[in-house]
Computed example of a mutant assay.
Amino acid sequence: MRRNILITGASSGLGAEMARQFAAKGHDLALTARRTDRLEALQAELAQSYPQVKVVIHSLDVNDHERVFEVFRAIDAELPLDRVVVNAGLGKGAPLGTGRFDANRETALTNFVGALAQAEAALELFRARNAGHLVLIASISALRGFPKTVTTYAATKAGLASLGEGLRLELLGKPIRVSTIYPGYIRSELNERVKHTPFIVDTEPGVRAMVAAIEAEKAKAYVPARPWWPLAQVMRVAPLPLLKRMI
Rank of each mutant, 00 (worst) to 15 (best):
F22G: 11
A23N: 00
K25G: 01
H27R: 06
H27N: 11
H27L: 00
H27V: 04
L29N: 13
L29E: 07
L29Y: 10
L31K: 00
T32E: 00
T32P: 01
R34G: 10
R34A: 14
R34P: 12
R34W: 00
R34N: 07
D37R: 02
L39V: 10
L39N: 00
E40N: 02
E40G: 02
E40A: 14
A41S: 00
A41Q: 05
A41F: 02
A41R: 02
L42R: 06
Q43G: 06
Q43N: 05
Q43W: 08
Q43K: 07
L46Y: 05
A47N: 13
A47S: 13
A47G: 13
A47Q: 10
Q48V: 12
Q48W: 06
Q48P: 00
S49K: 13
S49L: 11
S49P: 08
Y50C: 04
Y50K: 06
Y50R: 05
P51V: 09
P51F: 05
P51G: 03
Q52S: 03
V53C: 11
V53K: 08
K54T: 08
K54I: 01
V55W: 04
V56P: 10
V56Y: 10
I57A: 10
I57G: 09
I57L: 15
H58A: 06
H58T: 03
S59K: 13
L60M: 01
D61R: 04
D61W: 06
V62K: 03
V62F: 02
N63A: 11
D64C: 03
D64G: 06
D64H: 04
H65P: 12
H65K: 15
H65D: 12
H65T: 15
E66Y: 01
E66M: 10
R67L: 08
R67F: 07
V68M: 03
F69A: 15
E70T: 14
E70C: 05
E70G: 00
F72M: 09
R73L: 07
D76I: 02
A77S: 13
A77V: 14
L79K: 01
L79C: 01
P80H: 13
L81Y: 05
D82K: 13
R83P: 00
R83W: 02
R83K: 09
R83I: 09
V84T: 12
V85M: 14
V86H: 03
V86M: 01
V86C: 10
V86G: 03
N87L: 06
A88E: 12
A88N: 14
A88G: 13
G89H: 09
G89M: 03
G89R: 05
L90D: 03
L90V: 02
G91V: 05
G91D: 11
K92G: 14
G93I: 05
A94Q: 14
A94C: 11
A94T: 07
P95W: 00
L96R: 01
L96A: 15
L96T: 09
G97T: 12
G97L: 09
G97E: 00
T98Y: 11
G99H: 13
R100P: 01
F101C: 13
F101V: 12
A103T: 14
N104P: 06
N104C: 02
N104L: 06
R105L: 12
R105E: 08
E106Q: 15
E106A: 15
T107N: 11
T107C: 14
T107P: 08
T107W: 08
A108S: 05
L109V: 11
T110I: 08
T110N: 10
T110F: 07
F112R: 11
F112V: 10
V113R: 12
